[in-house]
Design a protein around this nucleic acid. Sequence first.
DNA 1: GGTAACAGTTATCCATGGTAACTATTTTTT
DNA 2: AAAAAATAGTTACCATGGATAACTGTTACC
Lengths: 143, 143
Amino acid sequence: MQGFFQRYLSLYRPLITRLNELMSTYELSYSLWQVIFYIKNNGPSTLVDIANQYNVEKPTITRRVQRLEDLQIVKQIPGIDRREKVIQLTEIGEEVYQACRKEITDLENRVMDGIANEEQMITFQTLPKIQGNIMKGDGRKSE
Amino acid sequence: MQGFFQRYLSLYRPLITRLNELMSTYELSYSLWQVIFYIKNNGPSTLVDIANQYNVEKPTITRRVQRLEDLQIVKQIPGIDRREKVIQLTEIGEEVYQACRKEITDLENRVMDGIANEEQMITFQTLPKIQGNIMKGDGRKSE
DNA sequence: GGTAACAGTTATCCATGGTAACTATTTTTT
DNA sequence: AAAAAATAGTTACCATGGATAACTGTTACC
């Protein structure tokens, strides 16, 4: 499938730019949205939970959470393990989630305009398979 | 198609990391590769040509080309319009192109492992349609 | 020949993410 | 139970990639 990477990657910048525009209304970006999305769908979570989910390092999540705390979108709740910082959505956070969720879903629909349902489904299913193949080949532990 | 963006975006970082690893052998990154690829396939080109192709600003391409000149992968050739900087692959550049082209194509094949040809084709065709929909909605000029 | 448009560069800034080194806890080992 | 190892999080610093604004030359237009 020669040229696949090019096609995949040339969509990235327009898409992420669009998403960030969309969320700038709430002083958010897609990277912050990921955190909101995660704790909304998985309940109160630690920074390590989130870092694992998105395959990024801990300091990256530390920063995202700090910004969300500044925006009063998340707050820390007491946990048993005092090493952990368990965070949760605030009420403001819930509202922001609902508003963004709607806008993102709308965009997801618009973006699929004129594309047959079957094609959408197949693309939807194929992307994670590709990701699996890439991450399988990572072979970090095999040294 | 709820959750599409998440699926699309979660593939980005593993993929670009993999590509950059692959090209670090040649002191390259994917962003530099794009320039090499463009002038290989379109012949001697100006910085504006390249910037237009990838929807990035001119200073971004200035930097990429400077680094490729340092690496002796591209060189400037004389043109009629003395404002323009027409660049072309050097002999070293040609060799690097061939080597990278091969490695990237190999990776493109590996990444599609276990995915039916039909699914590959549909995904391949769907991505640019989505991109079209996003960029259509940009409406920059319509103010 | 003067003005506008264009190609490219420089300087500066922003967003995102990585690594290394550290603190504070908890778990494991002995 | 004390020592060592592992874990969660933070801080400081750096790299990449891209944007904008302001600038220099050069060419096109009238």
